[in-house]
Design a binder for these strands. Structure first.
Lengths: 231, 231
DNA sequence: TCGACCCGTGACGAACTCGTGACAGTTCCC
DNA sequence: GGGAACTGTCACGAGTTCGTCACGGGTCGA
């Protein structure tokens, strides 16, 4: 975390200054933007290590900013924490679907802020999630070449969908995946499948993973997340 | 990894030069090609130790290049790293299916590049896959010179296709092979053959292998795999 | 020409996989 | 504390996949 640069985007001066204050005190370099256009420009130009983005902005709202960030090559994998007053699940779901990495609801404590910032920075530094023929997360090993999976050293026998589901969850470890996202990633095209079916497969996968099942966490109201274990 | 020769295939001058720069600096001999035809020719002529292949090429694209490499005897087991900007899963899956050994997504760091190159060279050196006169995996011995096969010390009499199928499975032991891959490897050219026919030959091969048949595993929904018994 | 062998395909049953409804357990909010 | 929303688990039927059998066409040598 030392010397990381953070872009804070918020149009309310009060909140902006609170954010800047806390983050600066923790030793981060902070830059700011007060609207969507400025956010995009700064993100592109300064390549910050993390962005904190308010959803409610004049003109272009947070979703659109996020969507555009994800669309551009140079910012597509930039860690983003969404900031919102709304507790609505729909909002959060939409946020994760558009590609948010984490979420903070107002009002928030300084401690919550820094914890989330640290966690996200650590995570994105840990692994430039890329595709290799073998993925290891804690006690879980997935070997793409052999198409085999081990949990705590023991081979586990997975069906095609279970394997695929695990593969996706491991690749996107640390990030919440909505049921819809999982459907899209695991079940090819927009299959006409109940989102509840995902739960079923998660359950089956968990029983087969044994003790490691606890790493596959439920995020109530949103979806699932495979815990990212930093080394 | 000292003195290994690498063939880099990319039509974009910028990326090509970056690749050449980094690889040369690491001490590799580097040759280049800017399109599919040139890649095939160079691979054939220079027998590089590794190929880095961009997916997006003018004319013949990376998949086709890879497919042709895998189809020709002298290049069929050449280690290939695919290079792509696309993060899509489909692309990756397709890449592995066609026979890529690894994958790098743009943008990549110099470090990631050299790590993957080293890993792959090390790996392919470790298992001198092809053209050794004799392949032994557990109780199964295939003697290329004598064109004979033994299972648990007993000679087994195989037909031409059975022999070829076993040979391919042994060469690629530990890796899942889809029916399509097997068709391509065993039945030369894109024969118009039902994929189910592969099953039939696997079954025939199994009965002849006796107890060793259990090493030739079915991976439901995917294909087959010969269990790798590591020394 | 004939028989022996090899090979590709269709058919079919067994085993497995998967999606869904139902219901119980849990969590969250008021 | 009570109710609503959400999640875990069970059971079951439909669909898929795979192993095996049977058969017919093709090839090759005698």
């Amino acid at each position: 975390m030392p010397d990381a640069q953070i872009l804070v985007v918020d149009d309310e001066p009060d909140i902006l200054s609170v954010l800047v204050y806390h983050l600066s005190r923790e030793g981060y370099r902070v830059t700011t933007a007060v609207n969507g256009q400025g956010a995009l420009t700064s993100a592109e130009a300064e390549q910050p290590d993390l962005i904190i983005l308010d959803l409610m902005l004049p003109g272009m709202d947070g979703y659109e900013v996020l969507q555009r960030l994800r669309g551009a090559e140079s910012t597509s994998s930039m860690p983003v924490i969404l900031l919102t007053a709304r507790r609505e699940e729909d909002e959060r779901v939409r946020g994760f679907e558009v590609g948010a990495d984490d979420y903070i609801t107002k009002p928030f404590s300084a401690r919550e802020l820094t914890l989330r910032v640290e966690a996200l920075l650590r995570r994105s530094k840990a692994e430039p999630v890329s595709t290799s023929r073998r993925v290891t997360v804690g006690p879980v090993v997935l070997d793409r070449e052999a198409h085999r999976v081990f949990s705590e050293g023991v081979e586990v026998d997975l069906t095609r969908l279970e394997y695929r589901l695990l593969e996706v969850m491991l690749e996107r470890r640390g990030r919440v995946q909505t049921r819809r996202q999982l459907l899209q990633a695991v079940w090819d095209t927009n299959a006409a499948i109940e989102t509840r079916t995902v739960d079923m497969h998660v359950a089956r996968l968990r029983t087969k993973l044994g003790n490691a099942a606890s790493l596959l966490e439920t995020v109530r109201g949103i979806g699932y997340r495979f815990r990212a274990l930093d080394k």
